[in-house]
Design a protein around this nucleic acid. Structure first.
Lengths: 181, 181
DNA sequence: TTTTTATATGCAAAGGCTTGCATAAGTGAT
DNA sequence: ATCACTTATGCAAGCCTTTGCATATAAAAA
């Protein structure tokens, strides 16, 4: 569980409000880590209670005011220490894999539909990743060190999406062969 | 969340006790879905309260007795219906990716260590998958339909492990270049 | 002017998962 | 006999996450 660290990480370079965090989680770090706004607000409360974040209200014109959070020194230290803690590999926990264990003649066509859906959304994700890569990481070697880390995470996302896509194709081919018999 | 379906899926072909389920989750379906014994016992209780599972005590010699669970008709139906429900793609939620956003000169060598650890455990996982594949799925096309589904899930695991492994290599190469400057 | 949409934050209840503890039967080693 | 280990099941507390609701400001559309 690293939601608190994911939030602190998102705040390393820019202070943000809960609402902005929820949105930034739709891109950037959120490519790998999704959280609902309730989860984020609850976690922000915990983190500022702990003293890892400070908050200030910012007036806005044309919009309701917002509460902007920033990393405190204590937060920065906690984050750096967390980096050194060992983390385990997580299982995929993908429903689709469990569903495949239930494959039978009557649900093959549904599985095909789901796989096509996955294929499509992975394709879109891959386009997005590649667009980010071309725009911001065209020459990774010349980037500052933290940005190189972000690039490696992005590359992880790209490789994973490529692999998932090609697995979908393999699986669809196999299911197609079943259906035509 | 599909722990309950994962458990029911594991019980499709063989009745099992909680203890056996916890162990079988170390292989087979558990390749993709891990659960602690407490989680499993709690879920078994819920599922039998719902009428999706039946239980019977089985005497054993040389060991304590066990409580063996089996899918009821109601359970089978619920599982089949679940297959038709749409499921979403899940994010990776991998701590390591968040950590990479925190890369700096002082923690590069730790990241290298973690990546080498991941590489090693992915390699072992891949060996395991390939062993299972050779032993049970050498000729996937000739398998009964349900087994072909299981094979596709296994193939997903294999492709994913291969990809993760090669990403580790890419990342380690990049981090090596940083460290030598 | 009422409704809808986007921005912005939050509470409360329910449900799921983790952690720590507790129990118990049986085997094997010291 | 005692200790350690494996098999086997479970409670209870705490924590995390999800779901549903609630509120409020302001712009834009109907």
């Amino acid at each position: 569980m690293a939601l608190s660290q994911a939030i602190m990480t998102a705040l390393i370079e820019d202070d943000m409000s809960g609402y902005e965090l929820a949105q930034s989680f739709d891109s950037s770090l959120g490519l790998f880590w999704r959280a609902s706004h309730q989860q984020i607000y609850q976690e922000l409360k915990k983190l500022s209670d702990k003293g890892h974040l400070n908050k200030r209200e910012v007036s806005q014109t044309g919009k309701p005011n917002k509460i902007v959070y920033g990393l405190t020194q204590s937060g920065r230290e906690a984050l750096q220490q967390w980096v050194y803690q060992d983390s385990k590999v997580q299982e995929a926990k993908d429903d689709l894999l469990v569903k495949l264990y239930n494959l039978d003649a009557s649900n093959v066509s549904h599985m095909v539909t789901e796989l096509e859906g996955r294929r499509e959304s992975m394709m879109q994700r891959l386009y997005l990743y590649e667009r980010i890569r071309r725009r911001h990481y065209a020459e990774p070697d010349s980037l500052p060190i933290r940005r190189q880390g972000v690039y490696l995470a992005l590359l992880g996302g790209i490789r994973n999406a490529e692999q998932y896509l090609s697995w979908c194709d393999e699986a669809l081919k196999q299911l197609g062969a079943i259906n035509s018999n």
